[in-house]
């Protein structure tokens, strides 16, 4: 196990201590804050980091199209992971930052990873003006709804302009997103209405692209219950302008905990509790020595959704310290459209 994988394992994996709402104090055994129901968000401050929570991310996925109609997927994620619930200047800062960037085409999947320690300026997030960065990778703008996004790896780089076409949307109960029957939860909101315009630099040359992006903001101290082995997360944008976020947390006994948010074109949301949203693997393939589902049946009967979601590139494997599958998908069936799929915990 490499040092980096160890860091991530230490930081990312759920801890054994179940402390959700323990004695109503709202902190877990290590002193980290724990999400509470009925949150009151404070923007723009809440676009910034919450060092007293164990983990947090700024997670952007984009479905893009080139001038010749070729489709592309782009991912940009900045993670914050705290070894202790505070932050300070200098190398002693317990905040660890890491980031993943990827460009996916039907044939290729380019991935890069960055790691940094907080407190020295190599990585961080500020809110006024907004900037989230690690090394030269950056998502920044005067306001949260007008930003420029850059990242680079040995074989790619991209430079994209993001412009929000709709409001922020809040998942679960007003942004309090329950993750298990035992009550694990996170704070979770999104900006799913970004219009994108920019350039991808790939080995075969520069490609001007346009499309749509979806930004997730989530933080928590304990996102998964100890008996949960991984998750399958879908962000689907239908041609009619409606959107669906749904995830399925896999439990050791083979059962699932699901949750979904239906988003109208004007940003009005409907949250669905465990069981309403269903995702069933239809086809599996070998990816990086693992068996991973790459075609799914996704159902939300209350909204008449019964679609097939298939990977644009089945080999969209994020070969990073803690590897997972993440890539663009195409939607057919009752609704048509494009989206992103993330699958973790496949060994």
């Amino acid at each position: 196990m490499s040092v980096r994988a160890l860091v991530l394992a230490l930081c990312l994996l759920p801890c054994a201590a179940l402390a959700q709402g323990f004695a109503g104090l709202g902190t877990d055994a290590d002193g980290f804050a724990v999400p509470q129901p009925n949150p009151r968000f404070d923007f723009p401050a809440d676009h910034g980091p919450h060092p007293d929570y164990r983990i947090e991310w700024w997670y952007l996925t984009a479905n893009l199209t080139g001038p010749d109609g070729a489709i592309y997927g782009v991912q940009w994620t900045l993670f914050r992971s705290a070894l202790a619930p505070h932050s300070e200047e200098g190398w002693g800062d317990p905040q660890i930052w890491f980031a993943h960037a990827a460009v996916t085409t039907p044939e290729d999947h380019f991935v890069a990873e960055r790691l940094a320690r907080g407190g020295i300026g190599q990585a961080g997030v500020t809110v006024q003006p907004f900037a989230a960065w690690i090394d030269d990778w950056q998502m920044a703008g005067a306001r949260f709804d007008q930003m420029r996004l850059t990242a680079s790896g040995p074989a790619f780089r991209y430079d994209l302009a993001l412009s929000a076409q709709g409001p922020l949307v809040f998942h679960g109960e007003g942004g309090y997103s329950v993750k298990s029957a035992k009550g694990q939860a996170s704070y979770y909101y999104s900006q799913p209405f970004f219009a994108v315009d920019g350039v991808l630099s790939l080995p075969q040359g520069d490609v001007p692209v346009t499309g749509a992006a979806w930004l997730d903001r989530e933080w928590s101290s304990q996102p998964l219950a100890e008996d949960q082995t991984g998750w399958d997360w879908f962000s689907l944008s239908f041609e009619a302008g409606t959107k669906l976020m749904g995830f399925r947390l896999r439990q050791e006994d083979g059962s699932h905990f699901t949750s979904a948010t239906w988003i109208e074109p004007d940003g009005v949301t409907t949250a669905f509790p465990d069981g309403a949203f269903q995702a069933t693997p239809l086809e599996q393939t070998q990816v990086a020595g693992r068996t991973v589902p790459i075609r799914w049946r996704v159902e939300l009967p209350e909204k008449g959704v019964d679609v097939t979601v298939g990977a644009v590139n089945p080999q969209s494997w994020m070969d990073v310290s803690l590897p997972y599958w993440e890539g663009p998908v195409l939607i057919t069936g009752s609704h048509r459209g494009r989206g992103y799929l993330e699958m973790t915990g496949y060994e």
Binding site: V3, V7, R117
Partner: peptide, 14 residues
């Protein structure tokens, strides 16, 4: 030794 599984990287860093 830092690559070992029982090595406490948190301590190494902090």
């Amino acid at each position: 030794a830092l690559g070992g599984e029982d090595m406490d990287l948190v301590s190494f860093l902090s």
